[in-house]
């Protein structure tokens, strides 16, 4: 699977709430950030978790967010960041 995003792209995390195992933290869903690294293609943890070891590989990225966007009452400095590893199927272009 070819990586859809490149470094610098603005993306938004889907606001989805599947009931099973996934590796997208609740706190970042619906938030917008920027791709800072493409980590490679990896097996989907949502398949691996249920015993499917040979499912398709999916692109995975590190996405950077502003802390002030993440937490409404963030008490740190305005330039503080959080960086999260996210799989491509959890991301949409920020403009969409």
């Amino acid at each position: 699977m070819t990586a859809r995003y490149t470094i610098g792209d603005n993306v938004r995390v889907r606001q989805a709430y599947p009931p099973g195992h996934c590796r997208t933290p609740y706190y970042c869903r619906g938030k917008s950030g920027v791709i800072v690294r493409y980590c490679g293609n990896f097996r989907n943890p949502e398949d691996l978790a249920y015993g499917t070891y040979n499912g398709p590989e999916v692109p995975m990225y590190r996405v950077q967010f502003n802390q002030t966007d993440m937490w409404p009452d963030y008490s740190g400095a305005p330039q503080d960041k959080v960086e999260i590893e996210l799989y491509e199927h959890w991301l949409v272009p920020a403009s969409s």
């Binding site: 099973g20 590796r23 943890p45 949502e46 691996l48 978790a49 249920y50 015993g51 070891y53």
Partner: peptide
């Protein structure tokens, strides 16, 4: 062995 993936354990 390949009997237990990290994500299976997490799940």
């Amino acid at each position: 062995r390949n009997l237990l993936s990290v994500d299976e354990l997490r799940r």
